[in-house]
Design a protein around this nucleic acid. Structure first.
Lengths: 351, 351
DNA sequence: CTCGACTGGTCAATCGATCAAGCAGAAGGG
DNA sequence: CCCTTCTGCTTGATCGATTGACCAGTCGAG
């Protein structure tokens, strides 16, 4: 429990106490067969008494394996995604890591000062065995280099422009079309606005394509509009303010995420435009916000936590050299709440 | 940029390319004075060309310093605190770490299977130079051991039972009294209920003491009630359901956090009890939820992000052996919204 | 001309854990 | 009785980066 008079307890200390060499102690603790049962017991006991905890640095150096993975959140993504997305990812990643007794390193900064993104140094410096990368900008070449640079990487999101990435994601295009069709078919809306996310993220691109698909199929693409915003609550409100009187020409809005939808609903309410009566609204993500606000935001639930867990598990497999899937798509679910015109009771209280 | 035919690039590779010893390369990259300017340039150039990134394991072993700190979230706390608290802490910690080019390791599991909390192994195994520990249960002896075990630790919260901890926190008791007095003095409420958090966390204890202080001062302690719940939204709703008809005897509620307040407001509304008209409600924390729901929840804003940043900065100082403060208390702010009876306009839209 | 002080490196040890190879002693087989 | 095979440990090298000790050459002062 206590360390030998303040200094760190090493294999050598344990070895001396038992009267063997450090090598023997190492073998005993690793349950290597070449150590006798009695000595193993004695060694383990001594190790416990001294409070021996192996040096992770030494082990990492020797084994060329750190038992740590990184969760990489490119700076751009930190801005782009709200708090809650991140939390869900983290939950999934740490859960998978804990199960395998692997540590999680969080890499968020793109420290250009040193000419190398900090997370690239983390990976290349063998500080981790691999990384889960959350949806990065299309323009981020680091992801490209990493996924080819020998470091095992699993990406969350869609990366059609990468060579042979291992990814887990959802079909954003189909999901967005699904949400759009809900407004068209269930609520009979005909003049829709899509508020897209930044086009330098694949997600923004795909969700807007899905919207376009749906309105085209329905033959109402002429009367529809696509604008772009920044995925923030403020951004959603700004869109409403900027559209102003033109809003009268539309009866439904499909947002690329819930934050914007929420900001927009607040702004619409302020303008006296009823949601869902005059303007039917759907969001995207369902990371938490959509459920608690009023009116509840109808949205597409993206199972980020499961995705992150799966991504991590696959990563750990890859690190271990286990072959497996290269692409996993998760199903999404449309969650009907009030903002589209569905009754609240369709979704029973879920905590 | 590329690694030498797949293998990792070491000092030796760079040294060979330039025609010097690894020692010289090391010194050059560390800008040691004993290397000539020309050689430094040549070495740096070669290092860049080869894409040299030092091995963090080797460096950690040699320097006995990992340039990594852990953010420890004892399992109990993960349950107790909602998502948003965690996100704020993380934001603060990573921000401070990034500024100093230090990595952040996330340790959340209390893996009893191995007889030692995983985060204790992380610290004792010198995987990190120190740790920021988020508010742990009073009963968690690991925190006690860690804060005495030679590993630099900074705690977020109040730990009166620890010997000489370095902590950053708020005065929960005074803050809770502040919120309570708001209901008493500004809104003239006289029969209050306090819904406390678990008593095995100092925060739960202190906030309930603050409530007691305020009602006693006001001479309305006779008519007041304290119940305990679990800090969840569901818990808040359950409290309301269980109190049932007894709620008619009260006109105000002080919750130990916003999640419970939200759950309670939803339940109260369902019962036809008007908030704030019949029941004036205040929450605690202001981590996000309180602002977005309707009615907006009046609450005490706890500046977790700043606290976490400060804690991390102090930790890094301690790691460097810089003397400094041992206890830092942050000011809190009462945020008036609708749930207590104040008008919403008192808090202009803040995003 | 010689001694001390620089300059610009090189050498070798070190940080701890691991493992292939080695080696002493006992046991077993012919 | 000698030779092989185990068993159970020890030796020594290794993983990369760092740094104190050392050293060859140069320069300036006395």
């Amino acid at each position: 429990m206590a360390s030998t008079n303040g200094r760190r307890v090493t294999l050598k200390d344990v070895a001396e106490k038992v009267g063997v060499t450090p090598a023997a102690v190492s073998m005993a603790l690793l349950d290597n067969g070449r150590i006798s049962a009695e000595k193993k017991i004695a060694i383990r006991q001594a190790a416990t008494e001294l409070g021996y905890v192996g040096s992770s640095a030494a082990r990492a150096l020797r084994n060329q394996k750190t038992n740590t993975i990184a969760l990489i959140v490119p700076l751009t993504a930190t801005h782009v995604f709200g708090h809650s997305y991140f939390t869900h990812v983290l939950q999934g990643v740490t859960e998978a890591c804990n199960r395998r007794d692997v540590q999680t390193l969080l890499a968020t900064n793109a420290d250009e000062a040193h000419g190398l993104a900090a997370y690239e140094r983390v990976l290349r410096g063998n500080m981790v065995d691999g990384a889960v990368v959350t949806s990065a900008a299309i323009t981020d070449s680091t992801v490209q280099r990493l996924s080819q640079g020998g470091v095992p990487v699993v990406l969350i999101g869609n990366f059609p422009y990468l060579d042979e990435p291992v990814t887990v994601g959802i079909d954003d295009r189909a999901a967005s079309a699904l949400a759009t069709r809900h407004l068209l078919e269930v609520h009979g809306r005909k003049r829709l606005i899509h508020v897209a996310g930044p086009r330098d993220h694949q997600t923004g691109l795909d969700r807007s394509l899905g919207f376009a698909d749906a309105v085209r199929e329905a033959g109402v693409d002429e009367g529809s509009l696509i604008v772009e915003s920044d995925l923030t609550e403020q951004g959603g409100a700004t869109v409403i303010d900027e559209l102003g009187s033109r809003l009268a020409d539309y009866d439904g809005m499909v947002f690329a995420n819930d934050d914007m939808a929420f900001g927009a609903i607040t702004a619409l309410t302020r303008l006296g435009i009823g949601v869902p009566t005059e303007m039917s609204v759907v969001g995207f993500d369902d990371f938490g916000l959509a459920r608690v606000v009023s009116p509840g935001i109808s949205t597409v639930r993206v199972p980020v936590e499961e995705m992150a867990r799966d991504a991590t598990e696959r990563l750990l497999q890859i690190v271990d050299g286990v072959p497996g899937w290269t692409r996993r798509d998760f199903d999404v679910q449309f969650i009907a709440r009030e903002s589209c015109g569905c009754s609240a009771t369709e979704t029973p209280r879920e905590l």
